[in-house]
Design a binder for these strands. Structure first.
Lengths: 259, 259
DNA sequence: GCAATAGTGTCTTTCAGACACTATATC
DNA sequence: GATATAGTGTCTGAAAGACACTATTGC
C-alpha cells in the first residue's frame, strides 16, 4: 500500500480521496428466522427505504471502532463481537459520489437486541430468507430475500449484496467458530443451539448426531459445552438442561489481533 | 453506509476522507516453498525495506480494478485471479498520515511469474515460512517468517500482518476452492498438485488418499480433473500423466459477482 | 394415562489415514 | 537389472446420517 514509483517527500495530499463509510449487518435469530436490523433512511438518496445502519469513518479511527460506534449509537450495546466482512467499492454504488464502504457484521441474541434498539431511530428487524446451504462464498448465487411484516423489502444502495455476504460468512463460520454463541444468551439448551444452526443453514438437522457432536467436540480455544445443572422449565414437557460455553479468552474477530 | 441521522442535502464533502490504497499479496510456489512478491521501497518511509506492491485507488475505480492495475504495472500480467482479503486501518500504520489499505491476494504459477516480473522495479521473491496448518483465521497466532536468499526480512508498514492474512486465507480455501490451480500451469501432474497442497499447508500428505480424493471429487462448478493423455517425461523414472481441470465458468473472486 | 419434548443407544455408510503392492520409465 | 517415481488395492478406525428407543415433565 501507500507507495509510488518515484522518490518523493511524504506528502499524500496529491492523491484524490474517497469518502469512507462503515455499514453494519447486525444479525439475530428471532421467531425461528434469521433477522437483520435495518433503518428507514431519513434523507435522499433512497429516502424512506430500508438500509443498513452505518456511518463515516473518523480520522485516525480504526474501522472496527467505527463499527462499534455505529452499533453503540443505534442500540447502546457494547462488548458485542463485530467482524470485518468486505469492502464495497463499485462506482455509482452511492449516487452522491465516490463512497467506499467497509461492511461489518455483528451478532446479538434477540432478547438482548429487542431491549436495546433505540426507539427514536426507526429501526426495523427484517427477516432474511436464504436458499438452503451453500457452503462456499465463491460461486455463490445470492438468493436472499428480505421480508418485513410479510412484505418484501427492497433495500437502498447495494445493501442486499452486503447482507448476502454476511449470510455467506455466517454459514461458512458456523461449524468451526463461536458465531452460533453470539446469537444465544449465556445459558441455552442444546435444542436452542440446534435451532440456531438450523436457521442459519436453512435446513433441518437430526437431533442425536447434533447433540453428540456438540457435547464431544472442543470449540476454538479448547472450550467445551458444560451443563449448568439448571433447567429450562418453560415448556409443558420434560425440562431441558441449560448449558453454557466453558470460559476462555478467544478473540472475537480477526482484526482484534492486528496492531 | 453513507448515511447520517438528520435529513440534509446530498453533500459528502463535509466528511474527512482518508487516503485509500490497495496492497497486493502476489503468491507463488517455487522451489517447494511458498513465495511472495515484494519490492524494495524507493522512498521514505521505510526506504530500502521490502514492502508489498501497491497503489492508491483512483476515483470511480473499483478496488478490484486497482488491484489488477497494480498487478499489471509490476508484471504485465492480466487475467489473473485477484481476491479481496482484508482492509487495514490501524491508526499510525502509515507514518505519512491517515491511509486505509485494502489488501488483495493473487496467485500465479512460478514459471509465469518469473517471466513476467519487471526487471526495472526491484522486485523480489521472498520465501514464506509459516507454522504447520492452522485451519482457522480466528485465534490464529501469526507465526510467519520471511526469508530472502536465506536472510530474514522485516517488511515495512504492517505488511507482515497482511501476508499472514493471505496465507491464512489461502489455507482456508485450499480444499474447497480452485486456489491450488491458480498456482499451477494449465497441465500438471497429480504430484505437482500434491506438492502445492503440501507447501501451502506446511505438512506432508499421503499419496494414495490424496490422488483418490482429487480424482473422485468435483471442484466448484462441478469441474473435475481429467487426464490429457500426455506425459511428463522430465524425470529419470516412469513418466507421470498430465491432468488438467475440466473447463467451466467459475467466478474467480467474490467481488466479481457484485454490481 | 396422554401428549410432548428431552435425551440415549445403535446400526450403517462414508471417508480419511496408513501402508503394501504393482507398473514403467531412465540408466 | 537397479533405481526411482507413477499409480493401485485394501485394511482400519473415526465420524456422519438415520432411526428407534427410553425418560420426565404438565395436564
Amino acid at each position: 500500500m501507500t507507495k509510488r514509483s518515484q522518490p518523493s517527500p511524504p506528502d499524500l495530499s496529491q492523491y484524490p480521496r474517497p469518502n469512507l463509510a462503515v455499514d453494519l449487518v447486525l444479525l439475530t435469530v428471532r421467531d425461528d428466522a434469521l433477522q437483520v436490523m435495518m433503518m428507514e433512511r431519513p434523507a435522499e438518496p433512497f429516502a424512506g427505504r430500508l438500509v443498513l445502519p452505518g456511518g463515516f469513518v473518523h480520522p485516525e479511527e480504526a474501522l472496527q471502532e467505527t463499527a462499534r460506534r455505529v452499533l453503540r449509537c443505534k442500540t447502546g450495546l457494547d462488548d458485542i463481537m463485530v467482524e470485518q466482512l468486505f469492502s464495497f467499492s463499485a462506482p455509482g454504488r452511492d449516487p452522491r459520489g465516490w463512497v467506499v464502504s467497509v461492511a461489518y457484521f455483528a451478532l446479538v441474541p434477540a432478547a438482548v437486541l429487542l431491549g436495546a434498539m433505540d426507539p427514536g431511530q426507526k429501526l426495523r428487524l427484517v427477516t432474511i430468507e436464504a436458499d438452503a446451504e451453500r457452503s462456499n462464498d465463491a460461486g455463490l448465487e445470492r438468493h436472499v430475500r428480505l421480508l418485513h411484516d410479510g412484505d418484501p423489502v427492497e433495500p437502498g444502495f447495494d445493501h442486499l449484496a452486503i447482507i448476502s455476504a454476511a449470510v455467506a460468512r455466517l454459514r461458512a463460520k458456523l461449524d468451526w467458530s463461536l458465531v452460533a454463541f453470539g446469537l444465544l444468551r449465556e445459558e441455552f439448551t442444546l435444542f436452542d443451539l440446534q435451532r440456531v444452526h438450523e436457521v442459519v443453514l436453512g435446513r433441518p438437522l437430526l437431533k442425536s448426531p447434533f447433540r453428540k457432536k456438540m457435547l464431544e467436540r472442543a470449540f476454538p480455544g479448547g472450550r467445551r459445552l458444560v451443563p449448568t445443572g439448571r433447567f429450562d422449565r418453560s415448556g409443558r414437557h420434560r425440562p431441558a438442561e441449560l448449558y453454557r460455553l466453558e470460559p476462555g479468552l478467544v478473540p472475537h474477530s480477526f482484526e482484534s489481533t492486528l496492531p
